[in-house]
Write a protein that binds this DNA or RNA. Sequence first.
DNA 1: AGCGCTCCAATTGCATGCAGTTTGAGGTCC
DNA 2: GGACCTCAAACTGCATGCAATTGGAGCGCT
Lengths: 252, 252
Amino acid sequence: MTARASSKTSESSDKVSVICRALRRAIIEQALEPGAKLPEDALGERFGVSRTIARHALGQLAAEGLVELRRNRIAVVATPSWKEARDAFDIRIELERLVVRRLAGKLTKAQIAELNAHVDAEDRARGGTDAVSIRLATEFHILLAHMTNSPILVRYVSEVAYRCCLTLSLYSRPHSTECAINEHRAIISALAKGDEAKVMDLMHHHLDSVANRALVAPTPQRGRDLLDILAPYADEVTSDRVVKLPKVARRG
Amino acid sequence: MTARASSKTSESSDKVSVICRALRRAIIEQALEPGAKLPEDALGERFGVSRTIARHALGQLAAEGLVELRRNRIAVVATPSWKEARDAFDIRIELERLVVRRLAGKLTKAQIAELNAHVDAEDRARGGTDAVSIRLATEFHILLAHMTNSPILVRYVSEVAYRCCLTLSLYSRPHSTECAINEHRAIISALAKGDEAKVMDLMHHHLDSVANRALVAPTPQRGRDLLDILAPYADEVTSDRVVKLPKVARRG
DNA sequence: AGCGCTCCAATTGCATGCAGTTTGAGGTCC
DNA sequence: GGACCTCAAACTGCATGCAATTGGAGCGCT
């Protein structure tokens, strides 16, 4: 039971997939912050593979939107603009409404137990770091998606949820995870009862409130370095070659 | 105006992207049928690049679900199961409802003209092959997604629409494109009027009817070869090493 | 004929090497 | 001091080479 679902489309067990998983996790746990550089050499060396493999992994992550790739430039962890973040949440809401619609009243006892166990884990993690809480909360939703038994749905929900995870780390204030946990419990309960309308409503408002609580404003005045802070703005600029600020200490 | 949107996450203009686009188009136009083999060498030679590049392109397409990759085996054009096809359509319905909700009443005159022009093109193509009709119909939806100005939405709608395109070629009877075209016109009209509820309803029923008209039944008794016919069933088998039929003429 | 075995051509998995591009450090001139 | 130029190190883009795996043709056995 190493992998829950080994869809044939991706994530078998070749080196590329291994590196993808490792990087993905590092990114969503903020071990790698948005904007962090990901040179192929360094990755290859770190994971004991050649640049070819590292490069391929970066390509996959770029397709998922977690990494930004620009020709002849070092890959960096994606820095979604506020607008993109909002978009991702909107899409996520629709997808997850579909998930719970499919699940309402159809969960086995074992599945309900699994969900409850996960929320318990979230509860226990409340004392830990924000990053872990966010990751667990995200994984709750992915767990739900898995239960639909639809690989496609799993893929899209995972992807968009990871994206949201990433943006939360960018724009969120240190939020209270408590209500999210309660909302998770409410969702499980409504799913078990089979109240489709209610569970869809719960999920909608749950995600909407997470988004609204988190995506406070398009003013990322956090302690990050200038380049990171400016990056979302540079996003809007159509020109490929943006502002070109005067000499400033760059990261690294 | 070579590329409508050059999102930084993908599809710049490196060789990999070029090959991706070419293959994607070949697949959705059924020049490459589901199950068709895609050896790296052959692709590389055909496109004048090395295997490295072809391989990378295949990886991207696999991430999009258009190609199936199995370790140490030749890549093949994906052959989605009937269940996967249905799933893809369900997801697509949700995503596209989001698209039209965002677009209702917000289209410029120029955009409306562009949409109408596209449907006119669909109309003119009615005499042509099914593949072209299906592609144009698909592209109408992608065009809509582009108008939301949301790269993420564009990406997901495109991806899932291509997947649907692929499944249509697998499971659809030679369908009448006429009503689809009329429905497209109705959607444009409702979008222009800004009647959000109506346009969402139209889109929902449009896609649902396309799905129902097309995905006739999980009995793909078409003239394809045995391996293709069996593939969707093999999908359900959990074991990696499936049935192993007696000697039979394989494709190629 | 039908079944299994062996072996080789075809193909993938991956590392490495080379050429071209970008970056940014240091020097020069104003 | 600050803007500008130059250049080498760093890095990417891509092709090629080699080892490992697959599959299927041929062959022998029943």
